[in-house]
Design a protein around this nucleic acid. Sequence first.
RNA 1: GGGUAGGUGGCAGAGUGGUGAUGCGCGAGACUGCAGAUCUCGUUUAUUGGGGUUCGAUUCCCCACCUACCCUCCA
Length: 457
Amino acid sequence: MKLYDTLNREKKEFKPIYGKRVNIFVCGPTVYDYSHIGHARTYIFFDTFSEYLRYKGYEVFYLQNITDVDDKIIKKANDLGVDPFEISKKYYNEYIQDMLKLRVNGVNLYAPATFYINEIIDQVKRLLEKGYAYVTNDGVYFDISKFPEYGKLSHQSLDSIKAGARVDINENKKNPADFALWKKRKEGEPFWPSPWGDGRPGWHIEDTAITEFHFGPQYDVHGGGSDLIFPHHECEIAQMESVSGKKPMVNYWLHTGLLTVRQERMGKSMGNVINIREILKEVRPELLRFFLLSSHYRSPVDYSPESLDLAKQSWEKIVISHSKLKSLNAKESEPVFVAEINRFRKEFENAMDDDMNTPLAISVIQSFIAFVNKNMEKFSNLDKESALTFLEDIDRIMKILPRNDSSVEKFIEILLDTRKLTKEKKLFEISDYIRLKLRENGIAVEDTSEGQIWYRI
RNA sequence: GGGUAGGUGGCAGAGUGGUGAUGCGCGAGACUGCAGAUCUCGUUUAUUGGGGUUCGAUUCCCCACCUACCCUCCA
């Protein structure tokens, strides 16, 4: 398997540090508002990535931080006149709810920054001892002049970073590009005691403290949105590689392209933020996943209701075929298609192995679906089993097939039996009514030579 | 201004130094109580523009134009 590493700007053969064990860290959200479809894009990708590695037999530990103390949270809390922790707690919860609805469950551990204050203080202490940081009136800062490689991830020279730096209002800093490791307490802000007085962590330090605690100074994969490359990930490298003296901090930096809405950046100031919970009122999570995985993770995705609608046609085809396959009465005979099915599986794996080329993988799935539709009636029970297993393996990785809720399945079956009876008596008005009503509730019914089939859309 | 990733048919979206997937859409037919699905056949001179390298480039190089993101926690 090959993965594109942002640091080296090339696809590299994937080799974990510890055999089959893979340590993945992904930057989580700052929990000060509902999560939007841009978050969905990134986290659905990394969910799929971790599940694919598991499918390939790796033992994955996927760790994700939650920034639960931050300027934006504090500002919102102050505006509303509530405790900042009320804000972070609420939106942390909402975030988890959204992720569960999106079937993002590949994450092994969510790590809120405030659970790691001791580790953060300890790391800052070591940076100071080693001379990579200095204390000022308002906090502790990392001294980037001590880390000449600063800029290597975003491929910018230190000079160009300095030249591009905006006017710095903080005259305490030695260099405008120095960044805060610890911020001293201000009125109305949450704080923890530290050797430098009461205060709170800087933004970048939580990630390296958390990863050092769980993974040590070096690990396999670090992911996040490409907007985090600079300065966030750059600062993480400076902190971790300085404190440990070991390079590289991670072997594979993976960054997702950002999502745009009608070719425009999605943002509060644009007024075009689409929350995950809003969009899930309109579409099934599995369709959203299919749509987002139809673009390569490093490319930007452009969202519009129209493009989602187009994706729906392709997506339904897969759902329908899966449903037909499940209800197929296959013959007890020698399997004849197993080799061909395995060829599709191999092609799917090849696509995924090539830097998680999910759009190509999806095209393989589509070809496979055409193959199934064409040959299904000739399937033996072993052919059927083999095809179903393949689709279900895909679904474990991508989670693009709607899940059935067994509690209502029984009632759907009863309605379909009723419909069958009315059809036999040619009471088509009634049978069509049942079909229509089910459809209105997201259950599509079709009459096939095998009888009725149904699926969720 | 600096950095990064891109610009492929009506749409989405791969790949490749030697006339370019896959799917949607569209047209016709088969099937069908209807619907839907599926199958068969068909469908567009598609690779931003201009140079260069090459026997040959969509693929490599240069320039231009265009798009998105980042340039310090203020987006």
